[in-house]
Design a protein around this nucleic acid. Structure first.
Lengths: 357, 357
DNA sequence: CTGAAAGCGCTTACAG
DNA sequence: CTGAAAGCGCTTACAG
């Protein structure tokens, strides 16, 4: 491999001058700089980051501990977000997987790798919003947590999706469309999001002066991320539709439930949008964009969790605060129902994908 | 940071002996080794990989160039697969993103990072099966390509999903169930998979002695991964069902098309499985597992592409061959239709998820 | 604006 | 089985 000395020889300077050039030190005569750059180009020289790291005692590495973020549909965006910010700060990500299944030795090995590389900080990212026990190493190096909350002794700055706010917002949105009878098809109660989303839904109804009708709530085992309970939507839907007056909108705990609902309604001759409004959470793209009509849903802030986690890490704040990040409302067409009188103008803040052909 | 010398001092040996211990050199007396290990434990010593890299001239780093693999649903599994194999060989992955949108400078920077870290090899991974122009740096370091094929001057060992074989297999499978009239709802023709999947479908019919009925093929713009063409399934389905005799099975180019098909059929009072068999490609999990009945589909070999790409890289083979990896047939219930007489026993090789409740 | 010396923390190659 | 010397390719701190 070509080194700084080879470049110096070709450029006819000392190697220290080459070091100055590659570090953008202004104290180099323009002509000298040009000669050095030419030599670098000619030799295809690239600085050796191991040498830099050793001497400067700064690795430029941020460890990204992925607890299955490449497994769950969009949670890989946490990684992308972290990467975007790392790029902008000339840091590089070293990614390791920590599979809960993989056992303790594997997990320990992954952390050893990061510490041996002298990672300057660690980001722990979860596949979905849940509780995690952070490894003790995260107490030794500046660390942050994204899409999960810590259960053990180690506490670090934490970035979570604001589930309750999202539910509050989407329910308010349905209310603003003129809906008064809004049903709710909940999530698997083992999910952290389950109670928070339901709470937001209730809060919105209450603040609108609408009494929560428990008959319109189906908080069932729908869609455990780790299980394979098949839908109970088919059972729930008849019960919900039997109410009088019938609900005019159904809020689903997640997009896959909405997908099942579309199917159940189609089988009963009911059309989403036409006969009944539907809205949901997550914005799982293959589902939400390909359903007809397009699914109005609250998009999980994966990218933003990754970005903010990295920002926080690089800013050096170590206080173990929790920041809840807003979902983005994606308006497609599933919330549009004829014959309703909207209460107030639509909020301007939403992203709109449609209506489209 | 604590170094090898600190450990040596505490253990009462020379630092060279410490080096031997951490490198598992057998030429150390058992008692000495124990003393050293104790000192390591007590001081919390971890070898500095930058120093190792510099002296040994081996970084242990493999560069993973992600062309959006964290974006597309399951393509992140390429990364996971590569990581599994890297782990087993004591290599560590450095992941960089190359967004086609991000511009040339960003792309160049990502590659510079990997070369400055002295990556011993590069893996380029695409979000979906398509053509890519490989960066020239991939000609300078051992490199492989996963889920894409090279268009430019740089050619490297390549790992692709075997689209045609998958279509051949799933069509044979439907034939084995007794289907004779199998319709095909194709992919966006700009996709590399489009023609290959259709070719496999045709091949299976021909080898079964069934004349391909062009009226049963709808090779339309369904589901461009980068566009937002909305489904033409609604238009296609009436045309397909108007055929006489009516098709008994519909093979979809991808799962999101199958999802649209389920909906279109439900709206017409037809049930998947009950009235018409459906099968598909990709196995996009939120869709395929949550549809009712569960979707029988050919799973893309993402994990396997990642694993084999890494294996190939570590094995050092540099011949620019192309390896096509098999999809796995995931049997759920959508292919089950009553009243058909199967032709031959079902293959044993398939993975079965169901039937479930 | 340029350079010579020292040293980051290891491994290599050699000696005993 | 153990150790002393050299050196990987840079940056730091100092001198001129």
């Amino acid at each position: 491999m070509v080194s700084i000395k080879d470049v110096a020889r070709l450029a006819g300077t000392s190697f220290k001058t080459v070091s100055r050039v590659i570090n953008d030190d202004p104290a180099v005569r323009e002509e000298t700089r040009a000669r050095v750059l030419e030599a670098i180009e000619e030799l295809g020289y690239r600085p050796n980051s191991a040498a830099r790291t050793m001497r400067s005692q700064r690795s430029g590495v941020i460890g990204f501990i992925s607890d299955r973020v490449t497994t769950q549909p969009h949670s890989g965006d946490i990684l992308r977000g972290a990467q975007q910010v790392a790029d902008a700060h000339d840091k590089v990500l070293m990614v390791v997987n920590i599979d809960r299944d993989a056992g303790f030795r594997h997990r320990q090995r992954a952390l050893d790798i990061l510490l041996e590389r002298r990672a300057e900080g660690l980001i722990y990212a979860c596949d979905y919003h849940r509780e995690v026990e952070l490894p003790k190493e995260m107490g030794m190096v500046p660390s942050v947590l994204a899409n999960g909350f810590a259960s053990g002794a180690i506490r670090v700055p934490t970035f979570l999706p604001d589930e309750q706010q999202a539910a509050l917002e989407v329910t308010r949105f349905l209310l603003a469309q003129g809906h008064r009878r809004i049903a709710y098809l909940g999530l698997n109660p083992r999910l952290a999001a389950a109670s928070l989303r339901q709470a937001g839904y209730r809060q919105a109804l209450e603040e609108a002066g609408i009494k929560v009708d428990e008959a319109l709530i189906h908080p069932a085992l729908v869609g455990a991320p780790d299980g394979d309970e098949r839908s109970t939507v088919e059972e729930a839907i008849d019960r919900l539709l039997a109410n009088s007056p019938r609900p005019t909108a159904i809020l689903c705990g997640q997009d896959s439930t909405a997908m099942q609902l579309y199917l159940a309604l189609a089988g009963r001759g009911l059309g989403v949008g036409r006969d009944l409004a539907v809205a949901s959470f997550d914005d799982q793209r293959p589902i939400s964009t390909f359903l007809t009509p397009g699914l109005t849903t609250m998009r999980l802030p994966h990218l933003e969790m990754g970005r903010q986690a990295m920002h926080c890490l690089l800013a050096g704040s170590r206080e173990a605060t929790t920041v809840r990040l807003p979902f983005v409302r994606i308006e497609r067409e599933s919330h549009l129902v004829a014959g309703l009188s909207p209460r107030s103008p639509l909020s301007e803040s939403a992203v709109s994908d449609g209506p489209r052909q």
